[in-house]
Design a protein around this nucleic acid. Structure first.
Lengths: 147, 147
DNA sequence: ATAGATGCAAACTCTTTGCAGGTCG
DNA sequence: CGACCTGCAAAGAGTTTGCATCTAT
């Protein structure tokens, strides 16, 4: 029986339980930095819990994101999930499609500049980089990874 | 008969035609800064060409993006299109969901910094801002706009 | 005990594709 | 004529939902 788990208290505060499917789903997303899709999470969870349903995976991913234990990210081809909820930016490799985490530039001046120009209230910002990752710079013409 | 139109030469160079549906689709996307969905474009084009099909709208949006006359953008709830193909950033209003264009900060140093840290080749970067737009700062609790 | 969670299947939304007919150059 | 396009309908992919059953607290 689990007594301590990152985010457990958050769930309990909202009357939510840490069931076995839920915990496995959270573990899978947290264990990778590949920004997995729901389908990927489903495959992985099934290894340990073969009877889990895709609906359960979707329900939990959405719910865990709403609770702030996961981050969601729109992408061509579907939503992706990220166990790293701290501030960080992303690098998308145009050759293989992989999305890497990169340290965030938490420059306050960046937000202030936009706020000054638009009059909007800037609460957050995130930068997306595009290019070729280290692996793809070496192996030219490699086929896209399974996402 | 149109003899001059931004992007016409690009299309012709690839053996593509500027048909009436295609031109209307392009015009609709270019006429707004609301980063419209395919469904929005479809509705608008139908006003002038009632028999157009949604398939034609999708085919053309995708093709025009491939030709570089439009930009595509993944978003929860579907793809969005942008007639502004120049470098610019986006501000997403968390209250009303609208996406505004903001001038890009084309700082070379930003890319160099990431390249140095990761060893990746950075070809492009884009920043996403999140917050409350001017309209929403004034009217609290307004309902989300139709996207 | 009981609110919350699950599996299954059906439904839904967004997007793509096959095809026969139409159009531009 | 020949390549390109279109509308229509059907198919695909990703995601959500209704419901009876099960389970964590």
């Amino acid at each position: 029986m689990i007594t301590n788990y990152q985010g457990l208290d958050t769930l309990r505060a909202h009357g939510l339980r840490l069931t076995r499917p839920r915990q496995l789903i959270l573990d899978v997303v947290r264990a990778t930095d590949a920004h997995p899709t729901a389908a990927f999470v489903y495959q992985r969870v099934r290894r340990r819990l073969p009877r889990v349903s895709l609906a359960t995976v979707y329900r939990n991913l959405r719910m865990l994101a709403a609770e702030g234990l996961l981050a969601e990210r729109a992408d061509a081809g579907g939503m992706r999930f990220d166990g790293n909820t701290g501030p960080h930016d992303h690098f998308t490799c145009l050759a293989c499609g992989r999305i890497y985490d990169v340290p965030a530039r938490a420059e306050r001046s960046v937000r202030r500049r936009i706020a000054a120009r638009t009059g909007f209230e800037v609460l957050d910002h995130r930068t997306e980089y595009y290019g070729r990752c280290g692996a793809c710079r070496r192996q030219r013409g490699r086929s896209p990874v399974t996402r």
